[in-house]
């Protein structure tokens, strides 16, 4: 068949193409990092927000919820939960605190994580910070 297209040419396309597009990816990453301060709400990252992120991670919240659309699809999106709950940290704290230990018969229920008041405040602050990240207009509406 096409003897004009040799294995050596295929190999060169592979190495050349991969290197070229990886370098392009690095360039775009560099530019992204330069632009991020305008988008990622980093000014709001306090020690409390950082603690909130740890609480988020160490209770594996992503195992049921999505955050900015990434995670599991078993429970509601939480990237905008702060606005969905009427811009209220108290509502978030109250919800997490009031989960019944043994669940709700026949229904999905969030576990009772027995978080301390400090951790509850921190997770609410973290979710507030997340809701203020510029996500190009996503999600389409407040239901997430």
């Amino acid at each position: 068949m096409a003897q004009t297209f040799t294995k050596a040419m295929a190999r060169n396309i592979f190495y050349g193409g991969s290197v070229f597009f990886f370098l392009l990816f690095l360039a775009l990453t560099l530019d992204t990092n330069r632009t991020l301060p305008e988008l990622d709400n980093r000014a709001a990252i306090t020690e409390q927000v950082a603690l909130g992120k740890r609480v988020w991670e160490e209770n594996n919240c992503i195992g049921c919820h999505t955050l900015l659309g990434e995670g599991a699809y078993f429970a509601p999106e939480l990237g905008n939960v702060y606005t969905r709950f009427g811009n209220s940290k108290e509502a978030i704290v109250g919800f997490i605190k009031s989960r019944p230990k043994d669940g709700i018969p026949g229904r999905r229920s969030m576990p009772q994580f027995n978080l301390s008041d400090e951790e509850l405040e921190a997770i609410a602050e973290f979710l507030k910070y997340t809701s203020e990240i510029n996500t190009a207009g996503w999600p389409p509406n407040t239901q997430g």
Binding site: K7, A10, R11, I13, F14, G17, S18, F21, F22, L24, F25, L28, D31, T32, T35, L36, L39, D40, N41, L68, G69, E70, I133, N134, T135, A136, W138, P139
Partner: peptide, 27 residues
């Protein structure tokens, strides 16, 4: 094999961008 994996990386590396639509990254 070379042609297939060439196309994989040529499309797939920048294709990472399909995860960068809504997470606070540039539009």
């Amino acid at each position: 094999l070379y042609v297939i994996i060439a196309m994989t990386l040529i499309t797939g590396i920048i294709g990472t961008g399909h995860h960068y639509y809504w997470i606070g990254t540039p539009e």
